[in-house]
């Protein structure tokens, strides 16, 4: 069963319809890239899945080992509560284009903040707080090491390069062990030379079969790393399939037109 099922998702901003019925599914361990020009709705789609925007209608279901969780169902009358939204969000991690690291915390503190706050709600926290915090710290250090930043744990974000900051942001998103990790144009704010180090990290995650959705403008990267590619335009999915189809032999004229812009 697919880990994520999105059915007929729509999003309106006042009268403007930005998502016009998006449906797709994602298998566990799959890397899915979403491409398309600015304004095609791909970032809005990602923000809807992370509940930074509330979808107008449609359904989002996440299937984990614990069962099926309907995170959003537009046909349900009752709006989601704050607590439900927070719970929903934990299925997803999101890496922003602009990193959005917390400047007052070190790299390690950025990574461990959410797990530390979450641990406080555990019943055994009072009795074992020391051991729990030590474990969280070690997990955070291991994640930073995985990002190639073992020696940067105590640096503040402003002391790191853009590429290093983005890698800390990836570690931060991984710390909560989300079912699906989302990237919103993770290298768009970076110099070309720093782009490589971030893409390398994401490639590593794909090799480890991390379930990912990547909104990107890096066509070569999308080709190499993804199992499937979605091309969006004007709030609809124009074409989806393996990169060998969508990126090499697109069936739709609109896709070909878009790819020509990239010299593809």
């Amino acid at each position: 069963m697919a880990i994520l099922e999105v059915e007929n998702l729509r999003k309106n901003f006042d009268k403007l319809e930005v998502l016009k019925g998006i449906s797709f599914s994602l298998e566990k361990g799959e890397a899915l890239s979403i491409i398309g020009s600015s304004g095609s709705g791909k970032t809005t789609l990602l923000r809807c899945m992370n509940f930074l925007e509330m979808p107008t209608s449609g359904r989002i279901t996440v299937n984990t080992d614990a069962g099926a969780h309907v995170l959003f169902d537009g046909s349900r009358a009752k709006a989601l509560t704050e607590a439900e939204i927070r719970k929903n969000r934990l299925h997803f991690g999101l890496v922003f284009q602009s990193f959005n690291l917390f400047p007052q915390y070190t790299a390690l503190e950025n990574v461990t903040l959410a797990p530390r706050l979450q641990a406080k709600t555990r019943e055994d926290y009072k009795a074992n707080s020391k051991a729990i915090l030590k474990e969280i710290n070690e997990h955070g250090l291991a994640l930073l090491a995985q990002m190639g930043l073992a020696d940067r744990a105590d640096y503040h974000p402003h002391q790191l390069s853009g590429g290093q900051q983005q890698r800390v942001a990836i570690a931060r998103a991984l710390a909560l062990e989300p079912d699906i990790l989302c990237f919103d144009e993770p290298t768009s704010a970076l110099d070309p030379e720093l782009t490589g180090e971030v893409l390398k990290v994401i490639r590593g995650l794909a090799e480890k079969k991390t379930t990912m959705i990547i909104v990107t403008h890096e066509m070569g990267f999308a080709h190499d790393v993804s199992d499937n590619v979605i091309f969006m335009d004007g709030g609809v999915i124009v074409e989806q399939g393996p990169p060998s189809q969508v990126l090499e032999n697109p069936r739709e004229e609109r896709t070909r037109q878009f790819l020509r812009g990239y010299g593809g």
Binding site: F51, E82, R86, K87, R89, F102, A114, L176
Partner: peptide, 20 residues
């Protein structure tokens, strides 16, 4: 973006205000 980063990490509104 600071608030949004807190939100996607599942922080409560109060945690975002005091911690972020």
């Amino acid at each position: 973006g600071q608030r949004e980063a807190g939100e996607v990490l599942g922080l409560t509104k109060a945690q975002i205000f005091f911690r972020v």
